[in-house]
Design a protein around this nucleic acid. Structure first.
Length: 743
DNA sequence: CTTAGGG
DNA sequence: CCCTAAG
């Protein structure tokens, strides 16, 4: 047999399209690699910055001036990414962070699979599935050895757990403080190991909160179940005030979501957010691409504000805003089809409405505010000493008496809930990327920190912690932090029809750089993730400093592998992502689109001018050489239909081959012709029977001739056309129906 | 969306 | 297999 030569254009792999058409159109054309160049690392800086902000070290001398005077430096020691899935009615974590030794937790996201999505992967169906995304940052004060951190990505039972390794970076947070500015804020993040200075302090307490749990005092907690777990540091040496911040899950309106119907267990968990979304993450509107324009119909991840969440709050404003959001959302959806492909960018949804959408004034006092923040989990709560042991309390007291420093420890921020819709046939790589994108969108919009005290937003940045009362024990429980969209990123001008939406503009806190940082945050994060579970590292240019620090944890591979196998099994035996782990191709974004719930307005509002297209991680489809059988089918179809009707060929012979588009078939034919013309020795790949190749040449010659005649026909006068036509019919013994039959 | 072609 | 211009 002769070897078939394969034309190799140098691509390493492709992703398998879930749906040929949609997939194809959804595919990104811009190499992710090109876009993810410059500021990868800065993303982590942002992370560190955010975390750093929350790690406050108040000094005895209050500064009346602006917070800008404060100098912050932080080193990020560790970052852990986790994705957790909650079980339907039980707001229990399916999987708790097994490594709390890691001070820094980055809980990324949860996946919601829809009815028809990834069933084979054991994903729960949307209705019963509740997903929460957590984005947590924790300062490092642990004695555990963090020098070597390995990122881990686990995907099991619809749950992706990723633990990131070290994220080394130093961040200087200038002007902005976390709400209370009077004091000087010192940010300290250690890259390696524990911060020794703090280890010895006995006046610190560390608290850990279960990811899904909500603050006890949280108004939203309907069941009254205390979600918060308080734990002292196991090391016994490190004591600090720790708290978890939760960005409430983004409320998505069920009606609007085709994807997932959510359960109400969130209420019990008290982590739902109802505020309007103000800040959209800038979408990547590649509006210019006509192809993508139409494609966005069904495949995408949606995150929408939940109406029912709104009901939790009493405030008319909230309801109103929610309503507005909803209508806005509808409007958007109806009027706009966002290109599926382009929807790489999830819109950043704002966690708090306090800044803008709602009247800025009444918010702080309104009951719903607290409800929102607490219940929705939007506002991270600083865990108080609830249930703290006497000794601990004493320690803390002594601490306070000793000096006026207040230590904050933020265990994590919760990322808003994500909804992801992905075709059953989607690859694991697609799933990964989808999650990635969703998280990226949320985190990439630029963040700022909001401080909540007793459910009220502390707007005066110049107040000292002391003045605010944050330093008092009784206030600690009521202290919360929120991640909020950066106001500066909103672009009112982009609002459709002079959008009714208002954007926060009260706080100039965010640094321009912060936004930038935010954009790269996830990107960078995923860089690390890619080293582990996501296997997308090839997409990112190596970042020596970072890369070297992260080690791959093989133990996590199995999960991914299994899933991959599952998904891939539907198709031909394409190499599973695992197999191609080192390859560039891993993710398939075609059928996947992520749409942040809060981003409804964001879509309208957000400009896409951002240079960052980092989320466009779309990779090539996985390469799937044609089998002899396929070639046979192709040849047969082409013999019948000719070389100019690839769509028909597709329909005729590859209708059920989802991964073969007509373009693919056309390309294959091209290569077949080429193969047939070259010597057998030059051919590569699976040998194609010579007989088949002969037919290829024959058919190609025939149809080429036909094509030429066609053109001649058109150029010449009608008469000659008829003549030509007649002669052609005779010569080629056409079959009826205009299809050619080759013996 | 399809074709046709270059990469 | 990707990307795009054209229709």
């Amino acid at each position: 047999m002769e070897l078939q030569k394969r034309l190799d254009y140098g691509f390493n792999g492709y992703q398998v399209p879930a749906t040929p058409r949609a997939t194809r159109s959804a595919r990104k054309r811009v190499p992710f690699k090109k876009r993810v160049e410059e500021k990868r690392i800065s993303a982590f800086d942002l992370l560190a910055t955010v975390a750093g902000k929350l790690l406050l070290d108040k000094e005895s001398t209050p500064v009346s001036s602006n917070t800008s005077s404060a100098e912050d430096q932080s080193k990020v020691e560790k970052n852990t990414v986790k994705e957790e899935r909650r079980d339907g009615n039980q707001s229990s974590k399916l999987e708790t962070c097994d490594q709390y030794s890691n001070d820094r937790e980055f809980i990324v996201s949860q996946l919601v699979s829809q009815t028809n999505d990834l069933r084979s992967c054991n994903f729960r169906k949307s209705p019963s599935l509740k997903n929460d995304t957590h984005f947590g940052l924790t300062s490092v004060v642990t004695t555990s050895d963090c020098s070597e951190r390995s990122g881990v990505l686990k995907l099991m039972n619809g749950k992706i757990k990723n633990e990131m390794g070290s994220l080394p970076c130093k961040v200087e947070t200038g002007p902005f403080l976390c709400g209370a500015s009077g004091g000087r804020i010192k940010l300290e993040f250690e890259n390696k190991g524990p911060i020794h200075e703090e280890l010895d302090r006995t006046d610190k307490l560390s608290f850990r909160e279960v990811a899904d749990t909500c603050p006890v005092e949280d108004p939203v907690v309907v069941d009254g179940k205390p979600p918060l777990l308080v734990s002292s540091d196991s090391s016994g040496k490190t004591h600090s005030y720790g708290f978890n911040n939760h960005l409430g899950s983004f409320p998505g309106k069920r009606d609007d979501l085709k994807v997932v119907s959510r359960d109400d267990d969130e209420k019990s968990s008290g982590c739902t957010y109802l505020g309007p979304i103000k800040k959209p993450f800038r979408p990547t509107p590649l509006i210019g691409d006509r192809r993508i324009r139409k494609t966005m119909t069904s495949k995408y991840l949606k995150v929408a504000p939940r109406l029912n969440d709104v009901t939790l709050s009493n405030s008319d404003e909230n309801l109103k805003s929610a309503y507005c959001d909803r209508s806005a959302y509808k409007r958007i959806r109806s009027e706009r089809n966002y290109p599926f492909k382009k929807r790489k960018f999830l819109h950043y949804s704002s966690v708090s409405n306090s800044d803008g959408g709602i009247s800025s004034e009444g918010i702080s006092d309104s009951p719903e505010q607290s409800i929102n923040g607490n219940a929705s989990g939007v506002y991270p709560k600083m865990r108080g000493v609830t249930g703290e042991s006497p000794s601990l309390a004493d320690q803390r007291k002594s601490f306070h008496s000793r000096d006026s420093h207040v230590k904050f420890r933020i265990k994590s921020f919760r990322v808003p809930e994500l909804f992801i819709e992905i075709p059953e046939s989607a690859t694991i790589g697609s799933l990964k990327r989808t999650v990635m994108e969703a998280v990226t969108a949320i985190l990439g919009g630029g963040l700022r920190i909001g401080v909540l005290l007793q459910g009220k937003k502390v707007r005066d940045d110049n107040k000292t912690l002391l003045q605010t009362g944050i330093s008092r024990d009784n206030q600690m429980d009521a202290l919360g932090f929120s991640l909020e969209p950066n106001p500066s990123q909103t672009f009112p001008s982009h609002c459709p029809g002079g959008s009714p939406l208002k954007f926060p503009c009260d706080t100039p806190l965010p640094l321009a750089s912060l936004q930038e940082e935010a954009e790269f945050l996830l990107e960078t994060t995923f860089f690390f993730m890619s080293l582990h579970g996501f296997e997308i590292r090839s997409l990112y240019p190596a970042t020596p400093g970072l890369v070297t620090r992260v080690t791959r944890d093989p133990s996590h591979e199995p999960h991914m592998h299994n899933l991959c196998h599952f998904v891939e099994s539907d198709h031909d035996s394409a190499p599973s992502p695992t197999d191609m782990s080192l390859d560039k191709s891993t993710t398939d974004s075609k059928a996947l689109v992520a749409v942040p719930a809060m981003s409804v307005e964001a879509l309208d509002v957000v400009p896409a001018h951002r240079k960052s297209k980092r989320s466009e991680v779309v990779q090539r489809r996985i390469r799937r050489p044609f089998s002899v059988a396929e070639v046979e089918a192709l040849v047969q179809a082409v013999e019948k239909l000719g070389t100019g009707r690839w769509r028909d060929v597709k329909l005729r012979a590859f209708d059920n081959a989802k991964h073969r588009t007509y373009v693919d078939l056309k390309d294959k034919w091209k290569t077949l012709v080429h193969t047939a013309r070259i010597s057998p020795q030059q051919r590569r790949g699976e040998p194609v029977p010579q007989g088949l190749l002969d037919r290829v040449l024959t058919a190609h010659a025939y149809w080429s001739q036909q094509q030429a005649k066609q053109q001649l026909k058109q150029q010449q006068q009608p008469e000659s056309c008829l003549l030509l036509y007649n002669s052609t019919v005779r010569a080629s013994s056409r079959s009826d129906g205009g299809e050619k039959n080759f013996g």
